[in-house]
Amino acid sequence: MTEKQAKQISKFLSLVLRHKPQLLDLVLDENGWADVEVLLKRMQRESKAITFEQLEFVVKSNDKQRFAFNEDKTQIRASQGHSISINLDYEAVKPPEFLYHGTPVKFIKPIREKGLLKMKRHHVHLSVDIETATKVGARRGKPIILSISALDMHHEGHKFFMSENGVWLTDNVPPRFIDFKDKT
């Protein structure tokens, strides 16, 4: 499998497991898990056939570890980023003192006014390091990297969760917890 093929499969899995399972008539359970065997059969039906080994390669090699198998690899789900209603069942945890968020310049004005909002997703996504936040923010142009006073937020009652792939999640980040000096 080429890198390009793996990327295409990853994008399709992100679409189906995070946003539109109906594209494959796929049913996700309350925690976002899909049956691997059913997924593979439905992908074949839609002319997107892959083997289990190829699926396993995409899960293991994805640079952001977007997907996870259950212990016996009979179920798969996206680790975060859902726009559909599911419960990832993550436990609230104490965050580090600072987390980071990369965003295009065009979004700075609304962020200054309202903070970071989850919009159509379940959570705001934050990174533990500037490098990761830069990669995330660069998807839509030159990013600005914001520093978030996560521990201060935690002390004021904001909950934080860590996804299986190390992405920090929270419901929103009010402007007073954001340092708008670009960290790049």
Rank of each mutant, 00 (worst) to 15 (best):
E53F: 11
G102A: 03
F57N: 15
K106P: 15
V128N: 06
Y100P: 01
I130T: 12
D29I: 07
G102S: 07
K64A: 12
G115F: 12
A49H: 06
L39P: 02
I130L: 07
A78Y: 11
H82F: 03
E97A: 12
R77D: 10
F52I: 03
S61Y: 00
T74L: 08
D72W: 05
T51D: 01
R66Y: 13
K114G: 03
L13C: 03
D29H: 08
L26V: 03
Q80R: 09
V36F: 05
R66N: 05
K120D: 13
K94W: 04
D89N: 15
S83I: 11
S14E: 13
L17N: 00
Q22M: 05
Q75M: 15
E113D: 11
F52G: 02
L28W: 03
V36E: 02
A49G: 04
I86E: 05
Q44R: 14
E71P: 08
N31S: 13
N87H: 07
V27S: 11
M43W: 02
V93Y: 04
I50D: 00
D129N: 14
A92Y: 13
F69C: 03
E113P: 08
E71T: 11
D72N: 10
L15H: 00
K109F: 04
K109H: 07
V36C: 04
K20T: 11
I86Q: 00
S61C: 13
T132E: 14
G32S: 07
G102L: 08
P96L: 09
V27Y: 15
A78I: 08
H101S: 01
F98N: 14
N87P: 07
I86W: 01
